[in-house]
């Protein structure tokens, strides 16, 4: 008998993560050969970005697209370590921390266990960087007096430390806010400045990337446990393939968008070691001590030790 699974995700059809969700379903359906069929529910028509975790936990859907920084910190705040500026240099290092480091494993396994979910594969959101509409961001002083938009609370201590005024604002309001000068700077993925046309107002970008935001395909644990082994195998195998392809693709796409941004007259400044050190100093002295509400000190320490090796 054919097993029918519902895969719900919030991304709009044109979004890179949505394309890979569809590709995931397509390959599973092909290889499942009538044993399993995945029906997809895109654009949050079933569950939104903040609702999907609960839906997976209760079994309202069998599979779901989950954004780590949105859905995991409400269950274990220490997952916020992912979003700490400059902590992990790429997706591979970030993922290894959660898979190989003892403290990382504890966070990762704890979240999946409490939410009764099974990891199927990666489908990342992308690398975050800082953009500005008014001036190049090559020194901490450049931020003084800027009006900064933040989405997650964890971003706020850094804006304050840099001397910027932070405003919380949903994504749909960013374009207008840039247009009328209500905000000057914010962190986002390169794809977003193109997708939302923010680059009409944004003029400067800062590299290296601040952090890498991961997203996942997860399954309801009880449902997964009851699957025949060959079906589990197919899900994990396709999950791994999609994980590798989507990660590569999102990084390439980010580079491509930044190139287009420069062609349009935008400026991307890659910080020199010296400039980077100035930011690291601010982070160490002013930002990290303020992050106690977001990440425990021992977790920050463990992550630092992990990346140092």
């Amino acid at each position: 008998e054919e097993i029918v699974a519902r895969l719900s995700y919030h991304w709009a059809p044109a979004h890179q993560s949505a394309i890979f969700c569809e590709e995931f379903a397509k390959r599973v359906n092909e290889r499942g050969e009538g044993k399993i069929r995945i029906e997809t529910f895109p654009s949050g028509q079933l569950f939104g970005i903040r609702e999907i975790m609960g839906a997976l936990s209760s079994g309202a859907v069998e599979l779901g697209g989950v954004v780590g920084v949105v859905s995991f910190p409400p269950v274990d705040k220490n997952y916020n370590v992912e979003a700490m500026p400059g902590m992990f240099k790429d997706f591979a290092q970030l993922r290894r921390f959660f898979q190989e480091d003892e403290t990382g494993q504890e966070i990762w396994n704890g979240v999946l266990k409490r939410t009764r979910t099974q990891f199927i594969g990666y489908n990342p959101t992308g690398p975050y960087m800082t953009f500005s509409a008014v001036r190049p961001l090559t020194s901490p002083e450049a931020f003084v007096g800027l009006k900064a938009r933040y989405l997650a609370g964890i971003e706020r201590p850094r804006w304050s430390a840099l001397g910027a005024d932070a405003v919380s604002m949903p994504t749909r309001e960013v374009y207008t806010a840039l247009q009328n000068g209500m905000i000057d700077t914010f962190n986002t993925v390169p794809a977003a400045i193109k997708a939302y046309s923010w680059w009409e107002h944004v003029k400067y970008g800062q590299l290296p990337f601040l952090f890498h935001a991961d997203a996942f395909t997860l399954a309801n644990q009880a449902w997964y446990d009851d699957l025949p082994d060959d079906v589990k195998q197919i899900l994990l195998e396709v999950g791994a393939e999609i994980g590798a392809e989507s990660t590569k693709s999102i990084m390439e796409f980010s580079t491509q968008v930044l190139n287009e941004f420069e062609e349009r007259g935008g400026q991307v400044d890659t910080l020199t070691d010296e400039q980077l050190a100035a930011f690291t100093k601010v982070d160490d002295e002013k930002v990290i001590p303020e992050l106690g509400d977001f990440v425990d000190a021992n977790v920050i320490e463990a992550a630092r030790a992990f990346v140092a090796n």
């Binding site: 903040r50 975790m53 609960g54 936990s57 209760s58 949105v70 910190p73 409400p74 269950v75 705040k77 409490r114 939410t115 009764r116 609370g153 706020r156």
Partner: peptide, 17 residues
Amino acid sequence: AASLFRDIGQVTEMEWE
């Protein structure tokens, strides 16, 4: 639903959790 979210230990996604 209330029990589910109590068991998961989910907090609000606000600055004030």
